[in-house]
C-alpha cells in the first residue's frame, strides 16, 4: 500500500511536470509567431528610433550631395561658357590684328 502511494505520487509529479513544460513551449511558440506575423508593428523601440534618425540624416546628406553636384555641374557649365567666350574674344582679336597688316606702296 505504501509502495503504491509512492508510485502514485511520482506519477502525478511527472504529469504536472509534463503539463508545465507543454505550457512553456506554447508560450514561446506564440511569441515567435507574434513576432513573425507583425514585424513592422507600430511599437517603436529605442533601436528603431535611432535607425530612423540615421535614415533621415542620410537622406538629408543625399539631398545635399545631389544639390552640390548640381551646383558643381552648373558652375562647370558657366565656367566653360565664360572660357569659350574668352577664347572667342581672343580669336576675334587675332583676326583683327592680322587683318590690319599693311605693306603700303613702293612709291616708284
Amino acid at each position: 500500500m505504501r509502495t503504491s502511494s509512492i508510485f502514485l505520487s511520482a506519477f502525478l509529479a511527472l504529469v504536472l511536470l509534463g503539463a508545465g513544460c507543454a505550457s512553456a513551449q506554447t508560450d514561446v511558440t506564440t511569441q515567435e509567431s507574434s513576432d513573425q506575423a507583425a514585424p513592422s508593428a507600430p511599437t517603436r523601440r529605442p533601436y528603431d528610433r535611432g535607425q530612423d534618425q540615421e535614415d533621415e540624416l542620410n537622406e538629408e546628406e543625399d539631398e545635399e550631395t545631389v544639390q552640390e553636384e548640381a551646383d558643381e555641374s552648373q558652375n562647370e557649365v558657366e565656367t566653360n561658357t565664360e572660357s569659350t567666350a574668352e577664347l572667342e574674344d581672343l580669336a576675334d582679336d587675332v583676326d583683327d590684328l592680322l587683318g590690319g597688316m599693311d605693306a603700303g606702296e613702293s612709291g616708284f
Binding site: 572660357s83 574668352e86 577664347l87 581672343l90 587675332v94 590684328l97 592680322l98
Partner: peptide, 17 residues
Amino acid sequence: SRISATIEKLEAFITKA
C-alpha cells in the same frame, strides 16, 4: 606691334584651350 600682339593673344588662346 600687330604681330607681337597677335602672338600674345595666340599664346593666351592656346593656354586656355
